[in-house]
Design a protein around this nucleic acid. Structure first.
Length: 339
RNA sequence: GGCUCAUGAAGUG
């Protein structure tokens, strides 16, 4: 029975296209009620899964899983229809159902609709939970509505909820991207006061804002602060630091980060290497880019399409068409399609 | 009890 649900999820993850209408219509009797009511296509694989066991009725989790697969594809309309259908079939949506739909609006950048759905959720006598607030907060932050986001978070207490790290991290993201250390520190203080420890994501988020802005000194300060707080930087955090040096036009220092992270027990991966290679390319230092590529391959890290693309770009930018062509060829030989 | 929903990294068409 849950095998069944896992199947649905698998198909959802695979983002199967929708030839489903045919599959649905071809289904034998014993079709789940929702099939009759959703006039449009469902993800093909999910429909196949339903077909597999004619006698079985979809459970709440089955519905949630399929609704999620719709939402991942931006099919909010179909998802809502499915919610109506499940109700008609006597299965009541739960918090997960609503969170899934709220997330869909969040992805579409529609905080108003997301908030509307939270109200709808409460009208259905369901309590928004921490995830609901994390999704909503993140949505508001993405929309640049920091004040509203804070309001919402402040409201959690009244509903018996305490902001967790997901919620706090969403706020931090907003302030970090606005390059507002005051805002960031304010949230960090609030986290400490709430007994929610800043984690590797929290610090990574902050570092990324600094690094993206080319303010690598601040990113460096942040990673040291993180270590001081007993939080070990992970692969992403180190990669972000390397990006900071790249963005600041300091590729040699970016490359030093590779050794630094290695020493910390976190070997660089393809993302880290490609980041630093792009730094050499940006500086027109193609021989260094090639040298690092060799180092990378020696360490059994294979270039991917983005690595190749970066090098092609680098040679083009450096007015080295001959080498650009060679790179393009190498890319094709490695089985990557040039764009 | 398990199975469904939330957060950070690469040249960025």
């Amino acid at each position: 029975a849950s095998t069944y649900n896992i199947l649905c999820k698998g198909y959802g993850v695979a983002r199967k296209p929708q030839e489903a209408q045919r599959v649905l219509e071809a289904m034998a009797k014993g079709r789940p009620p929702w099939l009759a009511t959703t006039g449009s296509a469902a993800p093909e694989g999910a429909a196949v899964a339903f077909r597999a066991s004619p006698g079985l009725r979809p459970t709440l989790r089955t519905y949630n899983t399929v609704i999620n697969s719709w939402c991942e594809e931006g099919g909010i309309h179909e998802a809502r229809k499915l919610m109506a259908a499940m109700r008609a079939a006597g299965v009541s949506p739960d918090e997960v159902t609503f969170n899934t739909l709220i997330k869909a609006y969040a992805k579409l950048g529609q905080p108003d609709n997301a908030e509307r759905l939270v109200r709808e959720m409460e009208n259905a006598y369901l309590r928004p939970n921490e995830r609901t607030f994390a999704i909503l907060t993140s949505c508001l932050v993405e929309a640049g509505q920091m004040d509203r986001a804070r309001e919402i978070v402040a409201h959690m207490g009244a509903r018996g909820l305490r902001p967790n790290s997901y919620v706090f991290n969403a706020l931090i993201k907003g302030y970090a991207r606005a390059l507002s250390p005051d805002g960031v520190n304010e949230v960090l203080d609030a986290m400490a006061a709430a007994g929610v420890p800043a984690d590797v994501t929290t610090y990574g988020l902050i570092m990324d804002a600094w690094s993206s802005a080319g303010r690598v000194g601040d990113a460096r300060d942040t990673i040291e602060r993180m270590r001081g707080a007993g939080v070990a930087p992970d692969l992403q955090a180190w990669s972000v630091l390397a990006k900071g040096y790249v963005r600041a036009g300091r590729p040699a220092e970016a490359e030093k980060v590779l050794a630094e992270m290695e020493a910390a027990g976190v070997p660089p991966n393809i993302v880290t290497f490609t980041t630093v290679i792009s730094g050499w390319c940006s500086a027109g230092r193609m021989e260094d880019a090639e040298r690092l590529l060799t180092t990378m391959v020696d360490r059994a890290v294979e270039p991917n399409s983005l690595t190749h693309k970066t090098l092609v770009w680098g040679y083009a930018e450096a007015q080295m068409p001959r080498q650009a062509e060679e790179r393009l060829q190498a890319m094709e030989n490695a089985g990557f399609r040039p764009e």
